[in-house]
Amino acid sequence: MKFLRQTLAVAAKDLRSEIRGKEAVNASVSFALVILLLFSFAFDLEPAEIRDISGGLLWLIFAFAGTLILNRSFARELMNDCLDALLASPVSGAQLFLGKCLANYVLIVIVECISLPVFAIFYNVRLPQRLALLFVVMLLGTWGITVIGTMFSAMTVNLRLRELMLPTLIYPMLIPALIGAIELSRVLITGAPLAESLFWFRVLVAFNVIFTILALALVEIVLVG
């Protein structure tokens, strides 16, 4: 109970200060819109083809826009040495990490929920009847991005160039999760039979479980030593 209370306090703190300033969310949503615009120049496709690559486009948008939020996550603690104040409190590294993950997760999902309908409108993609399933895929894929991103945000927080470092480090790491999410989204949006792609769910879940455990186990080493 105490564990959960403290973890949620960290998450609530991050959400509150982000909602007050809206720096990261605004930047992230604008960036998502910019990418949507750029795609329109990069591809000139028939509706059927668009649906075929929409999984990939969506997750590129999510991954790029998500990084802007993840970048802020630990950087937020730099001013006034707040990270030290948090680490000095009885909250463990794992709780701190989990709290920050939850806040990032909520923020990224919000950005996704804004960019998904915009994407559908701009590119005339009719959202699938299995929208709930697509949402599940979004939730699973986003957790992968969040866990890896928050962990590497913690690792790079004290470095020069951390804004450049984070995307370069996390995208290759995220490949398995992204492939899974892209495949599933494509299948759901095109309306192809899901049965053959069901194992991608397992890939996503496995990725999330493995890296959540690994990150929780190692984050204390990253933050304190």
Partner: peptide, 11 residues
């Protein structure tokens, strides 16, 4: 090292 295995399998 953990990721390499997953990358390999999934690709």
């Amino acid at each position: 090292c953990v990721d390499i295995v997953l990358v390999w399998k999934s690709i």
